[in-house]
């Protein structure tokens, strides 16, 4: 049986471009089926706005199954809303009650400038990956895959970290807008694997330095991990810090040898 939720008051952030000041706009949803996802609720609202000759609310989304990392939204102050371990697109209206007020805002962080309404620019994440978030292995030269055995626990731990979808909720949830969980996750994924060892310290150093150009610094609040839809563990930050320290040390040694 399908049920519905009624009389929802939405306070939606509208901002007409990066330079605009922006303000909340209030809309009432009289009734919506609780099978609808949160973004489908916004679709319905947008259809209504177009019907009223108004501009639709701009928001980022694509896969709608929690894997592409495109959707965002602070929902009542929580990155990706109230449901733990999931993205906004996976949130369903059954998580809300009749007469609820829902405040919907974009990610707020200096490194993620607002483009319009609820859409932000997360390109800083790409710049960090470009600085070192890869294993150098040009096409064609790879040895047979089973020549590099990877112990299952190592493969599993690497996979846990690699599950990051690059959504930016960690940054949005952090009081300092730090990106340590995102960067730690990528460094951990690659630095745990045997294939990643050759560039291990170079990678850690390059990525952390690039991160520091864009993002605030981590003061161990742990909000990031709590907001993370993939529940990436804070351990990745510890590994990143350890490898970064070793990198600085090793590089100093190399410099002194010159």
């Amino acid at each position: 049986m399908t049920h519905s939720v009624s009389n929802l008051t939405l306070k939606v952030w509208r901002q007409n471009g990066p330079a605009d000041k922006g303000q909340f706009e209030t809309h009432v949803i009289e009734s919506i089926t609780d099978e609808a996802s949160f973004l489908e609720m916004l679709d319905v609202l947008n259809e209504r706005l177009i019907g009223e000759n108004k501009e639709a609310i701009v928001f980022d989304h694509d896969c709608r199954e929690g894997i592409c990392g495109t959707c965002s939204l602070m929902i009542n102050g929580q990155a990706h809303g109230p449901q733990r371990g999931s993205t906004t697109c996976q949130l369903h209206m059954r998580s809300f009650k009749d007469d609820d007020t829902i405040v919907i805002e974009p990610w707020r962080a200096n490194a993620f400038p607002i483009i319009k309404d609820l859409m932000v620019d997360r390109a800083a994440f790409d710049r960090i990956v470009e600085s070192g978030g890869f294993i150098t292995s040009p096409t064609g030269g790879a040895p047979d895959a089973n020549l590099i055995p990877v112990p299952k626990p190592v493969a599993d731990a690497a996979m846990d970290a690699a599950a990051c979808i690059g959504c930016g909720a960690c940054v949005a949830a952090c009081p300092n807008s730090a990106a340590n969980l995102f960067v730690g996750a990528k460094i951990t994924h690659l630095n745990l694997l045997p294939q990643g060892q050759a560039e291990r310290y170079k990678r850690a150093e390059a990525m952390v330095d690039k991160m520091d150009e864009h993002f605030g610094s981590c003061t161990n609040h742990g909000e990031c991990s709590a907001a993370c839809p993939k529940e990436i563990s804070l351990d990745v930050i510890a590994l990143m810090n350890k490898d970064y320290r070793s990198a600085k040390f090793k590089n100093r040694k190399q410099l002194s040898r010159k």
Binding site: I135, A142, D144, A145, I148, A158, L193, Q195, G196
Partner: peptide, 14 residues
């Protein structure tokens, strides 16, 4: 498969 393992894709392992 060789190429992707070299890139660090964490495929399932025995």
């Amino acid at each position: 498969i060789d190429q992707m393992v070299a890139q660090g894709v964490p495929f399932a392992r025995e």
